[in-house]
Simulated assay, not measured.
Amino acid sequence: MRVREGRDGDVPVVLSMFDSAVAWLAAQGRTGQWGERPFTGDDRRTRQVADWLAGGGMRIAERDGQAAGCVVVGAAHDYVTPATEPELYVQALVTDRRHAGHGVGRTLLDWAAGEARARGVDLLRVDCYAGDDERLVAFYEGCGFTRAAPFTVGTWPGMLLHRRLTAA
């Protein structure tokens, strides 16, 4: 698997990744995270992904020559408690369901940790949906993150997590 920078043409690819994740979650009755509507065709979601690309922090994991997942790093979201030290923040992470079970998400999080180290930063943070059975929180914990603080945005339950790194 290789991780490359986001590039022109990736916005519809990333929207499609989210579509596959939303459909999979909705099929399980798990609509609390991202709802049940596809991201493709939603102007707000399209702008969001385009902004991620323009911001320079988007990376795409490719598996067997196909886009398999996306991570976006940058500044923390405004709805979480600010860090008290320099950090790199995982703003988004998604895996195309066609590539589920092949370590795509873990590979992208490892890339983010390496990027943080390269920047001389010892803290990598992420937030995620913490509703239902908290399987997503458990995924991040399995990738070396530790729960920092629960939060809510409206009625959406979230968990802020962090991962300590050793800077290069």
Results as ranks from 00 to 15, higher is better:
45 R>C: 11
46 T>W: 00
47 R>A: 13
50 A>W: 00
50 A>I: 05
50 A>C: 09
51 D>L: 07
52 W>H: 15
52 W>I: 05
52 W>Y: 15
53 L>M: 08
53 L>A: 12
54 A>H: 07
54 A>K: 14
55 G>W: 00
56 G>Q: 09
59 R>H: 15
60 I>S: 03
60 I>R: 01
62 E>G: 01
62 E>C: 03
62 E>Y: 02
62 E>M: 02
64 D>F: 00
65 G>I: 06
65 G>P: 07
67 A>C: 04
68 A>V: 08
69 G>D: 02
69 G>A: 09
72 V>G: 03
73 V>G: 01
73 V>L: 03
74 G>T: 11
75 A>D: 14
76 A>P: 15
76 A>G: 07
77 H>D: 13
78 D>F: 10
79 Y>I: 11
79 Y>P: 10
80 V>Q: 13
80 V>A: 09
82 P>N: 01
83 A>E: 12
84 T>Q: 08
84 T>C: 01
85 E>P: 07
85 E>V: 11
86 P>Q: 01
86 P>K: 00
86 P>L: 00
86 P>F: 00
87 E>A: 00
87 E>D: 09
88 L>S: 03
88 L>D: 05
89 Y>F: 15
89 Y>T: 11
89 Y>P: 10
90 V>T: 06
91 Q>V: 12
92 A>Y: 05
92 A>V: 04
93 L>S: 04
93 L>H: 04
93 L>C: 05
94 V>T: 04
94 V>I: 02
94 V>L: 02
95 T>R: 06
96 D>S: 05
96 D>H: 14
98 R>Y: 01
98 R>S: 11
98 R>V: 04
99 H>V: 04
100 A>T: 15
101 G>Y: 05
101 G>V: 09
102 H>S: 10
102 H>V: 09
102 H>E: 12
103 G>H: 10
104 V>G: 03
104 V>T: 11
105 G>R: 02
105 G>Q: 06
106 R>Q: 10
106 R>Y: 05
107 T>A: 13
108 L>I: 13
108 L>W: 12
111 W>T: 11
111 W>G: 11
112 A>E: 10
113 A>E: 13
113 A>P: 13
114 G>C: 01
116 A>S: 09
118 A>P: 08
118 A>Y: 01
119 R>A: 06
119 R>S: 02
120 G>H: 05
121 V>M: 02
124 L>Q: 12
125 R>I: 13
125 R>S: 09
126 V>F: 04
127 D>H: 15
129 Y>G: 07
130 A>D: 04
132 D>S: 04
132 D>C: 02
133 D>P: 10
134 E>H: 08
134 E>N: 07
134 E>V: 12
135 R>H: 15
136 L>D: 08
137 V>H: 05
139 F>C: 10
140 Y>G: 14
142 G>W: 01
142 G>Q: 03
144 G>D: 07
147 R>Q: 05
148 A>P: 00
149 A>V: 07
149 A>L: 09
149 A>T: 12
150 P>L: 03
151 F>Q: 01
152 T>C: 06
154 G>E: 11
156 W>C: 05
156 W>L: 08
156 W>S: 09
157 P>D: 04
158 G>T: 12
158 G>Y: 07
158 G>H: 08
160 L>Y: 12
161 L>Y: 06
162 H>W: 00
163 R>F: 04
164 R>E: 11
165 L>Q: 09
166 T>F: 00
167 A>D: 12
